[in-house]
C-alpha cells in the first residue's frame, strides 16, 4: 500500500505511524517464539539474559540444558559416553521416552484421522450428500467443544467403555489405544477442513471420465483423485499430527505413567520446577514447527499449481 500522491501531511504522519504499529504487532507475535532460542543456551539456570550472554562471551553460553534432556532419568548419567551410555539414554531418559510416546501416538492417531477424514471429506464434497451441513457441524465439533469437556467425557467413558451396552470389558484409560483414539478425534476436524477445501477446486468430470473408461471406483480414487488431492491430504495429516503432538489435557486425564508425552512432560516442568531444560525442548519444538510450516506452505503452492488455481 503506497502512500497516494494527494496525501496531506496528517495522512503522511498516520501512514508512518500505521507501519510502526504493524511492526510492533509483528514483534508481539514473533518475539515470544524467538526469545526461547538464545535463552536455551544459557550457561546459568536463569530465565533471562545474563551479562555474559549480552556481551557475547562464549562462557555465557552452553549446551548443558540440551545435555540434561538426555541425561534426566538415566540410570547412569555419569558413565563414559560409549554405546552403552546411548543405550541407557534410549531406554531410560525421561524426555527421550516422552518423545518416543509422542511420535507413536501422533503417528497412529494421524493415520486414523487421515484415513477416516479423507473418506468422509470425499462424501461431504458430493452434492448428493444428505444432511451435509448437520453432519459437517458434528464432525468439526471436536475443534469447538472445550477440551476440558471432551477430556472429562473420555475419562468416564474409557474407565468402562462397554457400560452403555451394560457389561464390563476392561478399560481404555492408561492405554496407548485410548490416547490414540482421543487424539484421532481431536485431529479429525483439521483433516476434514483441509481436504474439503482442496476438493472444492476438484474437477468432478475427471473421475467421471475415469469411470466411463471402465475404472472401478477404487481405481479411480487411487489413480485419479488421490494424486490430485494429495497435497491437501498431507496438509491435513500434518495438522492432525501437530494437534496430537501438542495435546496435553486429554493426556492428563486418560493417560497413565507409560504414556507420558512431550507436552505432558512440559506441563510438569512448567507447573513444578521450571528449569531452562524446558527452553531447550521449546527450541527444538519451534524448529520442528518451522519445518512443518514450510512443508505445508510448499504443499499449498503445489496444490494450487496442479489444480490450476493461480495464487492471488
Amino acid at each position: 500500500m503506497a502512500l497516494p500522491v494527494y496525501a496531506d501531511p496528517l495522512e503522511r504522519l498516520w501512514y508512518y505511524t500505521y507501519h510502526v504499529i504493524c511492526v510492533a504487532i509483528f514483534v508481539f507475535l514473533i518475539s515470544p517464539i524467538l526469545i526461547v532460542m538464545p535463552l536455551s543456551f544459557n550457561a546459568e539456570p536463569y530465565f533471562t539474559f545474563t551479562q555474559k550472554m549480552l556481551t557475547f562471551d562464549p562462557e555465557g553460553y552452553s549446551l548443558r540444558w540440551y545435555d540434561l534432556l538426555l541425561t534426566h532419568g538415566m540410570v547412569a548419567p555419569d558413565a563414559p559416553r560409549d554405546s552403552s551410555w546411548w543405550e541407557d539414554v534410549w531406554a531410560n531418559a525421561a524426555w527421550v521416552k516422552a518423545a518416543k510416546n509422542s511420535v507413536i501416538i501422533g503417528f497412529w492417531s494421524t493415520i486414523v484421522a487421515t484415513v477416516l477424514g479423507t473418506l468422509a471429506a470425499l462424501g461431504l464434497s458430493r452434492s448428493e450428500m444428505p444432511y451435509r451441513r448437520l453432519i459437517m457441524a458434528v464432525l468439526i465439533s471436536p475443534m469447538i467443544v472445550p477440551i476440558i469437556i471432551i477430556a472429562t467425557g473420555l475419562f468416564f467413558f474409557y474407565s468402562n467403555p462397554c457400560s452403555m451396552l451394560g457389561f464390563e470389558c476392561g478399560r481404555l484409560t492408561s492405554t496407548y489405544t485410548g490416547v490414540v483414539l482421543a487424539h484421532a478425534t481431536l485431529g479429525i476436524p483439521f483433516v476434514i477442513i483441509t481436504v474439503t477445501a482442496t476438493l472444492i477446486g476438484f474437477d468432478q468430470s475427471l473421475s467421471r471420465a475415469a469411470a466411463s473408461l471402465g475404472a472401478s471406483p477404487s481405481r479411480t480414487f487411487f489413480k485419479v483423485v488421490l494424486p490430485l488431492i494429495l497435497p491437501g491430504v498431507i496438509s491435513g495429516a500434518l495438522f492432525a499430527f501437530v494437534t496430537s503432538f501438542d495435546e496435553v489435557v486429554a493426556v492428563l486425564f486418560i493417560a497413565g505413567p507409560d504414556q507420558q508425552t512431550i507436552p505432558r512432560q512440559m506441563w510438569n516442568g512448567i507447573r513444578e520446577a521450571i528449569s531452562p531444560a524446558i527452553l531447550s525442548v521449546a527450541t527444538i519444538l519451534v524448529l520442528i514447527s518451522i519445518a512443518l510450516l514450510a512443508t505445508v506452505e510448499l504443499l499449498r503452492r503445489r496444490s494450487e499449481r496442479i489444480r490450476g488455481v493461480t495464487p492471488q
Binding site: 507475535l29 514473533i30 515470544p32 517464539i33 526461547v36 501437530v242 503432538f245 501438542d246 496435553v248 507436552p263 512440559m266 506441563w267 512448567i270 521450571i274 524446558i278 527452553l279 525442548v281 521449546a282 519444538l285 519451534v286 514447527s289 518451522i290 512443518l292 510450516l293 505445508v296
Partner: peptide, 12 residues
C-alpha cells in the same frame, strides 16, 4: 509460525 508452534512452548 505462532499458529504452528506448540501451545505449551508459547506459554513457556
Amino acid at each position: 509460525l505462532p499458529f504452528w508452534t506448540s501451545l505449551l512452548v508459547r506459554t513457556t
